[in-house]
Every structure is written in C-alpha cells, then in structure tokens.
Deep mutational scan, measured.
Amino acid sequence: LKTAGVNTTDKEMEVLHLRNVSFEDAGEYTCLAGNSIGLSHHSAWLTVLEALEERPAVMTSPLYLEIIIYCTGAFLISCMVGSVIVYKMKSGTKKSDFHSQMAVHKLAKSIPLRRQVTVSADSSASMNSGVLLVRPSRLSSSGTPMLAGVSEYELPEDPRWELPRDRLVLGKPLGEGCFGQVVLAEAIGLDKDKPNRVTKVAVKMLKSDATEKDLSDLISEMEMMKMIGKHKNIINLLGACTQDGPLYVIVEYASKGNLREYLQARRPPGLEYCYNPSHNPEEQLSSKDLVSCAYQVARGMEYLASKKCIHRDLAARNVLVTEDNVMKIADFGLARDIHHIDYYKKTTNGRLPVKWMAPEALFDRIYTHQSDVWSFGVLLWEIFTLGGSPYPGVPVEELFKLLKEGHRMDKPSNCTNELYMMMRDCWHAVPSQRPTFKQLVEDLDRIVALTSNQEYLDLSMPLDQYSPSFPDTRSSTCSSGEDSVFSHEPLPEEPCLPRHPAQLANGGLKRR
C-alpha cells in the first residue's frame, strides 16, 4: 500500500477492503520488508465503517432481458387475439339477427356486388357501394332449370318492384348476347291500381351458361335502374322476379327496335343500305322527324346527366323506338370495365364501338358527360344519314391518327348547316368547349319548333354512299384517289349506291 502524500496522485493510491473487522481494529498499520540489502516499511491507516445491508444481486445478463421482452410480447399478442375474438363473436351475433329477418339465414357465401355510379365530372372515377344484393341458397326452386355456371341464388325481396312469376307470361326471344337474352312477355297487374291490365314488356334474363359475374352484372344493372328513376326518353324498369327461380328483370318494350335499324328501314327506295329491288320502305321521314329523334335522345341524356350517370356507349344501336315513335335510351345501367376495353373487338352487330368514342376516352380512358356529348355528335350523324356507319372504310389504326390530326366527318347530304355545326361543336377537341346536354336540348327544341312538318328529305341527293353492312375495317380495292379515307367507291362485286358527282362522300373527313 502506498501512503497518500504531497507527490502522490489518486491513481497511485490503493485501497484495500477488509471484511470481518471490528471498531477496535482501527488504527495505523505498518508493513515491514527487508533483505540483505536493507529494510523498508510503509504505513497505512485502517478505517472501520459500519456494515452495509446486503441486497440480492440483480440479473442483468442479456438472457434475462430477452426473457422479459418475449414474455411482454406474448402477453400483448394474447390481449389482441382475445379482443378480435370477442369482436367477431359480437358482430356475428348481429349479422345472424339481420339475416334471420331477411329469411336467408341458411346461406353459405355471398357474391360481392358493387353498384357502380359514375359521379366525377372530369374523370372516370366511380363510387362503389358494397351493398350485398344477392346471396346463394341451398334451396332449389321447382319447375325452373338450374344454371350451369351459377347455382340457385336467393335475393332479398323488394316489394316496390317484385312481380309474382305467375303473372308473367314469357314469349318469343327479342335478342341475346354472350350470356344474357331478352324475350318478349306479357305482364299482368304491373299497375297496382289496375291488377288485371296486360302490358307487353321485355324481360332480361341469363342464359344457361351464365357465370356468377353475369348474374352480378344483371343485378347491378337492375339496381342502377331503380336508383336513376323514370323518364320518358329512357328504358324504364317496370319490375322484377327475384324469388323462387331465376332472376327476371322486366323493362319497357320498344316494338320498333333500335334507332339504327328504324332509320335504315325508312330509307327511300333505291337508297337503302343494302340493295333490294323488292324493298318496301316504312313511312317516309321528314326533316322534323329526324330533328325530333335527336331532341328526344338529348332529353334522355340530359336526364341521365342530372342523375350523375355517364353512359359511355351512346349510339343509335343503343336507342330503342316504341310503337308511338318515342326514343328511349337503353343500356345506361350496364357495368362496363373501362380499363379492359378491346379497341379492335367488334360488337355483336359488327360495329366498332371506338368510332363513337371521344379522343380523351379513346386515348386516356377518361369518361365524362362531355365524352358522352362527343358520342351524341356521332349519333346525330347516324340520324341524318338514316343509319349510316361512321368513318366507313377507315381502319382503327388510321382512325386514331386522323382524330389526333383533327379530322372530322363531313356534313351529311340531308343536314342543315346549323345541325352540322352542332355536330362539329360536339366533336370539339377540348371537352370543356363542347355543349352540355342542357344546351343541346334548348337548341334542338328551337330547331324542332322552326322546322315544318312538310319538309321531307331531299331525294335528289344520296343519303349515304356507303354500305354499312360491310365491315368498317375493310380497305376498299376500288376507292377513288389515293386515300380511301376521303372517298369510298362501290366494290365491283357488290351493289352500292351511285356516287353523286358534285357531292363529297358523306363519310369523308374534314380537318377541324
């Protein structure tokens, strides 16, 4: 031991701790050491302190810390799992109470259905409401065949629209698609105040090879029609059969078919879209009749726009005509997947739907009320060519290029400059510069009032120099000039209409 001194630092001082000593042992101690050379000694003081209470040693090893962490984590996880189980049990009790009230408590799974309603004014964004509309049932219905791709499903009954099956008599087919079909039928007692009145209706139903998605689409269309409500110039929902059998959606019946066929059937002799010497046209149409058709469609679209509904496929083929020549817009409630459109795929009647699409819908897939206005301009062109085919002879690839360059279709022969300028306004490259349906209704209403009933179509000018029955994407082998976009001569082996020498072909294109 070194004694503290003047020249001794703290580091040089050493402390020796002795245990089991008493206060009597306190004092100075000297350590002597010697050898043959000499003797040396050092002294140190022993200080006795009071004994401290002994405390248990605390484990601070890493293993002990890990044990604490794992135990704490396990406890927290157990609490979370327990909370989830309690929540599930409570929510399951509430669901079972709800389904027992709906009398569908025996169901095993559900079809996820979404009601898609486009509400954005400047995009294709949609509001999806995840309302459960249908659930599968283990119960089988008697007297009705089961669908191959869709098991029997039981829908919640809506008393406002439900019609008993025994009050619906199915008739002949009116048309069909890939998985759905429409048949003519007679409904008894659609009007609650007149329970014995028989009404001719159209009934939409699924085919035998339909899938769950097809069922989902049909129900979504029905729900959309319920929500949009009734208007004179749209196909209205009349009722539905949802209980004890396949789903039947009952809508208004339009006896004169779609507008395109309606116009073609009323072309003057010699100007029909397909040469037929025995062709006997229906009643002749006046200019006022054509303007009235456009006015009614505009009114229907104005109503749909007021309900925040974007059609996305407005064309003469999707406008139906009733016995009283009332125009009714159809298929506005269809669920369309705008992100998976095949631009080169034709519709069932051979038309390319892209020829009715606005550039922003075609290139950027942006659907708005103003893109519907563009389609309405093409529909106007169809009306005043009596069912002509837009951009005849123009392949899709060429159409993309022409639209980007600002080309537009030429004025039809039997169309006034004012109406043609309306078409051109609908085809404005900037969507915000196109008229609204409200403005179109006002303009067409004024034109109808000024147009005489006696103004019949000028038969001295050809209505349509093209054969719409030909595929639109076909290139002409005998077109006049180098560019078949601006002219389209008859093919030698097929009868077509004579070309008027002083008139540019109706399907020609102009640059805006």
Rank of each mutant, 00 (worst) to 15 (best):
S255F: 12
C178Y: 07
I341T: 14
L380P: 14
M422V: 09
K172T: 13
T477M: 07
D331V: 01
G171A: 12
E405K: 07
R424P: 00
V249L: 15
E252Q: 15
R351P: 14
N417S: 04
C274G: 10
F470L: 10
R266P: 01
T473I: 05
C426R: 00
P390L: 07
P431H: 09
Y367N: 09
K230E: 14
G393V: 02
F376I: 05
T322P: 13
I228S: 08
N233H: 09
N236K: 15
G239V: 04
R167S: 08
F437L: 01
L285H: 06
C478W: 04
Y343N: 03
L463V: 09
V169G: 02
L238Q: 06
T199N: 12
E323K: 07
Y275D: 08
E482Q: 13
P195L: 06
E455G: 11
H231R: 11
M327T: 06
D217V: 12
S286Y: 12
A315T: 00
D483A: 15
D166Y: 05
D331H: 03
R317M: 01
S278R: 09
E252A: 15
L168V: 06
E212D: 06
I447T: 05
A361T: 04
Y303S: 13
D324H: 07
L334I: 02
D445E: 08
K232N: 13
K308R: 13
Q181E: 05
M422R: 08
M327I: 11
S467P: 13
S467C: 06
V485F: 15
S371C: 06
A210T: 07
N325Y: 09
I250S: 03
A429P: 12
T451A: 13
L218V: 05
H339L: 04
G189A: 11
G377V: 14
Q454E: 09
C415S: 12
R446S: 08
S479Y: 15
Y295D: 12
P468T: 14
S292P: 11
F179I: 03
D458G: 11
S375T: 05
L380Q: 14
V396L: 07
E283A: 05
S479T: 14
M205V: 01
Q370E: 04
T348A: 08
F179L: 03
P277H: 09
T368S: 04
D410V: 10
V441G: 13
M357V: 04
Y262C: 04
E302V: 06
Y456H: 14
G229V: 15
T211K: 04
L314M: 06
G171C: 09
G175R: 06
M422T: 09
D425Y: 10
V321L: 09
H428Q: 10
T348N: 06
S432P: 03
A361S: 13
A254V: 15
Y391D: 08
A429T: 08
D289G: 04
Y295H: 08
W381R: 05
L444P: 01
M422K: 11
M422L: 12
S460T: 04
D364E: 04
A294D: 02
H369N: 14
E212A: 09
L320R: 00
L457R: 12
K307T: 13
R317T: 00
V203E: 01
S375A: 07
A298T: 01
G177A: 02
Q433R: 08
P359A: 03
E482A: 13
I219N: 13
H407D: 00
P268R: 06
R474Q: 10
R365P: 03
K204N: 06
I310V: 03
I341N: 07
V319I: 10
D425G: 12
S306C: 13
V183A: 14
N276D: 09
P359H: 02
S413G: 07
M421L: 11
G175V: 02
P471A: 08
D337A: 14
A240P: 01
P390A: 15
D193E: 04
L320P: 01
V249I: 14
I219M: 08
R266W: 04
